[in-house]
Design a protein around this nucleic acid. Structure first.
Lengths: 198, 198, 198, 198
DNA sequence: GATGAATGAGTCTTCATTCAT
DNA sequence: CATGAATGAAGACTCATTCAT
């Protein structure tokens, strides 16, 4: 389905569909959003949807994958030149908070996706990638004695938990400035892994 | 609805309904579980359901509230006699991890509830209570100079995030022993708030 | 589905549904008839249908089975007391022509069912039963020297073909009197198997 | 539509379309086969279809007509030189069985076409032609005293019924050799009309 | 208190057909 | 001639909810 060759206009339509769906899914949830409504919003017949996606489910998975890919790309870009592993972790965390602040809708989708059997798999594997990036830096920090010994995976998930929770509560619900929240997250995590920043 | 006076048998029926619903909602999600199925499982007609609950939505909210109440009660019991605020926090965290380990299904329900407009409100207020308990201990710790200055609410949410994430990943998905995971959570959080335990 | 216990009213509803469906399927075909229409005709909501049948397909198969069972019952009744195998065959053929004359709609359903993969199986097994009844009489006739040797199955199917075709053309399309058509069928078949009637 | 002047390539495309449609209709039925699928199979856009046929219905009718024409042509060829009417009938029957054996798919299409209002008409008139060819030979046989008096049309339809049924069951389903089945058909029919072959 | 039955709006999806390019 | 894209009516089926008995 997603491998069909599309014209320029086709690509546009497909993107419209994904954007609108993302918005609606985030606003009212996956189940309460109907295919019909997504189409209506972009002023297209119900049929277009099925020209570009084979099912509502497939569309959602596609959105999820795209988003995870995007976040990861950005983290790589922001981190690549940093040599100290702890600073790398701090930068990665900051990036992820900022990204979530900018993509409120995608963030919500991630939350939901974790709770539905059908998408939990896709989410888990996506999260695994993100988390194991962090875990690698942590392993390096432990080996070089920068932080005390511990299981990198445990720490990486803890970091992930802090970022998610604070982003959701303070950025999305209370609209505090994203960079200040990021500071808090970084501080907590650095303390949590037993490191100090110069 | 919930204030109706029930006979002993009535109370039993009601509890059966809630238990079965909890199981099914956790297993396959709220939307994919139909009222008909819940009733079928306890071998009752669909009418029974509407005798005890005015809607599927109400039932779910009731489940949520019960669960939050239960967790809080347990935390109070486990904490009440501890005088050091940091130790109190540690004990509270440990309790919450253990509780989540024992109530896998309720934990999943919490996750979902956060993602649906209809239940997010109920969840937020419930979480607020839990979190503000922790925040109170943190405020005390800050005032008494046990930990460096910071916004208690920020820290409380960070703690909540670590507990949730590690519980989900390591206890529910990977089945690591709950108390060991609790140790990790506690250690990370103590470090995160800048404290040390004797 | 079909094993649900029904009240008197329930049984009535179910029968109404089957009758109306039979009529519509026969009139315009299986595919062109929608579940919605069947329900509308008996002035019921779309949901009733699915209370009694798990799918449109299941309903059709049920109709088919009922009909085959009915025809067979009637043949048994009409034949049981006849001792000469050839006369038994003649009587059976006559019964089947008369039955088809009376149940024009069911006859049409049989025709269609043969052409659709999903129902061909059910039809084939139903037809097999009918045909093998005839084949048994033929075998007896051959053994007792009443008719020349030949494969009973071949003959039975030939008889089946003659009945079907003449019923369809002359009774259903041209409305000739059923008993006269039955005479023709019997005469042709008796000649076909190489017998003579006293 | 069908009278449009086509280039060589156009004729090829049109034939491909008909062949593929015949195959698919026979395999899974008329309704379950979509225009899109037919086009996909010959690797053409959906537009092509509507360049050559004005509708799915028209295509099907065209297939039907072509087939009936072909069968009739072949019967004429096989019969033309035979002077005895009974032998002519026997030869015609044999031809029709052999043709059906070779064109399994078309045979299935005929069966279905009879059951759908839209095509029943086309089928009936086609069958009428075939049957009245046979009826003519029968009339001659009756006039010349070769067989006992009876209504030629009745007999012709009976013959048709025997051929169809035995072909379907023994050739198409049980794969018995076509010529042996043809022998059975011929024998039964000769007996049925009260004739004997020298 | 409880049940079988009914309702009908709403869901996803399919498909014949049309049309701009 | 051909294609990719679009349309939207129609279809099968689900489900929360209601109600007569």
């Amino acid at each position: 389905m997603s491998d069909r060759k599309l014209t320029a206009r086709g690509r546009l339509r497909r993107t419209q569909l994904m954007d609108e769906a993302t918005r609606l899914f985030a606003e009212r949830g996956y189940h309460p959003t109907s295919v019909a409504e997504i189409c209506a919003r972009i002023e297209a017949g119900k049929g277009v949807f099925y020209w570009y996606f084979s099912s509502k489910e497939e569309l959602f998975i596609e959105i999820l994958r795209d988003a995870q890919r995007d976040l990861r790309r950005r983290q790589h870009a922001d981190i690549s030149e940093i040599s100290d592993p702890v600073e790398r972790i701090a930068a990665g965390v900051r990036t992820s908070v900022m990204w979530s602040a900018e993509h409120r809708e995608l963030f919500r989708l991630f939350e939901f996706a974790q709770t539905d059997e059908r998408f939990a798999g896709a989410m888990r594997s996506g999260r695994k990638v993100l988390v194991s990036d962090t875990a690698a830096h942590l392993a390096e920090a432990i080996e070089t004695g920068r932080i005390p010994d511990a299981r990198p995976e445990h720490l990486a998930h803890a970091i992930f938990g802090v970022s998610s929770q604070l982003t959701m509560e303070f950025i999305h619900h209370r609209s505090e400035p994203a960079d200040q929240v990021a500071d808090v997250v970084v501080a907590f995590c650095i303390g949590g892994i037993g490191a100090t920043l110069p």
